[in-house]
Simulated assay, not measured.
Amino acid sequence: MRVMVTGANGFVGRELVRRLLEAGELRGQPIEALLLLDRELDGQPDDRRLRRHFGSVTDPALLRRALADGIDVVFHLVSIPGGAAEAQYELGYQVNLQASLELLQQLRSRERPPVLVYASSVAVYGCELSARMDEGQAPNPQLSYAAHKLMVETALNDLARRGEVDGRALRLPGIVARPREPNGLRSAFMSDLLHAYAAGDAYTCPVSPQATAWWMSARCCVDNLLHAAELREPGAERVWQLPVLQLSIAQVLDALAAAYGEARREHIAFAPDAALEALFGRYPPLRTPQARALGFRHDGSAAALLRNALDLSPRRSRAAARKGVSA
């Protein structure tokens, strides 16, 4: 089994690589080679199964070299995030759209259709959402990033219909808790809030306590990516909206207070940005019966989300809460 991960050095990519190496197999076969593709691959483990391919996914020759010895499964994670893609249209166009289409084109020439798991985004729905949503919600992208994601979904569905690429696309929600560093994500406040509260740092949240978002931990995200690759009979529809936790900032703060202590809530202030909240703070309840029937899932609860996102065991959570209350 030969597996490739594009964007292997990213937040989700690193967790996926770790889990693949730990499992040692995929689709019932041992992983003989795990191909990592990214501009930088610092900090990846020293493992004989790893094949490192340094460079940009926009380089067709790099893709050809990486795929030259054959491929069975590809996890296509690399992208320019929404805010950065909007500010730098040409870069977003090259990475998010052109490179993805080139990858699909190279994969369709294989003798046996490889499995491609594509990380799409809930951004395809735009910000004019129904009061209650399900998997039938029509896409209405209002960012270039989202438009490009939808275009790749369409191409993937078409090649799956033709039997040329065994494509599976997952619409991902906000994945937490990303490192506290500039990343071009306008939804970065979701992760920043968790890190600040856990560390007891002062933080000014750019959306109100009433703002609602869709949340998922990186651990749960990787569970779903691996499950998508493992599906034997995915059916005709190859684009799935994952189950999500719909939580308000207030609910997340309550869970943080339960884990780390009520006293730290005093360090959190609010300065809502109306435009940002319109884009990322008005997500309604979302029903996903089709995805659930296929075995996809969310973290389960706000408390479980924090445990998964911050590597906080129940015992450590209780200890941290007691410490926070007495601080």
Rank of each mutant, 00 (worst) to 15 (best):
D311V: 00
A291S: 15
R287L: 14
A304V: 04
A309I: 07
R315G: 00
S301F: 13
P289D: 00
E277M: 06
D311F: 02
A309L: 03
D299V: 01
T288D: 08
L279T: 10
L310E: 05
R287V: 00
E277G: 03
A304C: 12
L310W: 10
R315K: 11
Q290G: 15
L305T: 09
S313D: 00
A274Q: 15
A309P: 06
P289W: 02
P284E: 10
D273I: 01
S313K: 02
A304P: 05
G300C: 12
R316S: 06
L305A: 14
R282C: 09
L276T: 05
R307H: 11
P289C: 00
A275P: 01
G295H: 12
Y283H: 10
P289M: 01
L306D: 01
A304M: 11
R315L: 13
P314R: 01
P272E: 15
A303I: 09
Y283C: 08
D273M: 07
A278S: 12
E277P: 02
L294C: 14
Y283E: 08
P272V: 14
P284G: 04
A304W: 09
A278L: 13
R282T: 06
S317W: 03
Y283I: 00
G300Y: 14
Q290S: 14
R307Q: 15
R292N: 03
R297I: 02
L286T: 00
S313L: 01
G300F: 11
L312P: 03
T288E: 05
L306I: 02
L305Y: 11
P314N: 01
